[in-house]
Amino acid sequence: MLKKLFSKNKKEEVKNNYIKGILQSPISGKVLSIADVPDDAFAEKVLGDGIAIEPQEGAVYSPVDGEISQIFLPSKHAICLKDEYGLEILIHIGIDTINMNGEGFELLANKGDKVVCGQKLINFDLKKIKENAKSIITPVVITNSYDIDRIETLKIGNIRAGEDVMKVYM
Rank of each mutant, 00 (worst) to 15 (best):
P26L: 11
A161N: 13
L2D: 15
N158T: 02
N101M: 14
M1E: 15
F72K: 09
S7N: 05
I159C: 04
D65P: 10
D65M: 06
S7V: 14
K128C: 00
G118A: 13
G112S: 11
I159H: 00
A78T: 05
L108C: 08
N144K: 10
G58K: 02
S62Y: 01
E12D: 13
Y18Q: 13
K3N: 15
L126Y: 09
A59M: 11
V116K: 12
A41R: 00
G157S: 14
A35K: 08
N101T: 13
I93L: 01
I89D: 04
I79Y: 03
E67L: 14
S7D: 13
I148W: 09
D147Q: 15
L87D: 00
L107N: 02
Q56P: 01
E12C: 03
T153G: 09
N110F: 09
G66Q: 02
I89C: 01
N99G: 09
K167D: 01
L23I: 00
Y85P: 10
E88P: 07
K45D: 05
I129H: 14
I137A: 06
R160P: 08
F105M: 06
F6R: 06
Q119R: 03
L23V: 00
Q70T: 11
L32D: 08
H92P: 08
V60I: 06
G86K: 00
V140K: 01
V60K: 05
D83P: 10
I19S: 13
G118H: 02
D36A: 07
V31N: 05
K130F: 06
I159S: 00
V165R: 10
V60D: 10
G50E: 04
I136P: 04
P26R: 06
N17P: 00
N101S: 12
T143N: 09
E88G: 06
N17A: 13
G102E: 04
K128P: 02
S135D: 01
L81N: 05
G104Q: 00
I95T: 14
E57L: 06
D49N: 10
Q56T: 12
D36P: 01
L126W: 13
K4D: 15
I79V: 15
M1G: 15
S145G: 07
V46T: 13
S62H: 02
L126M: 14
I27H: 03
M100V: 15
K167L: 03
I68S: 12
D39G: 10
A41W: 02
L107G: 07
I95P: 12
V31P: 00
V168E: 08
K155W: 06
A52M: 15
G29E: 00
N99K: 15
D83A: 10
H77Y: 10
L90W: 07
K8S: 14
I53Q: 04
L90T: 04
P55C: 08
V64M: 07
K120Y: 07
G118I: 14
E152V: 14
S33N: 10
L90Y: 07
N16E: 12
K120T: 06
K3Y: 12
Q56F: 07
S69C: 14
I137F: 08
K111M: 11
N17R: 01
K114Q: 14
A78S: 09
I129W: 05
V64C: 11
C117P: 03
E152W: 09
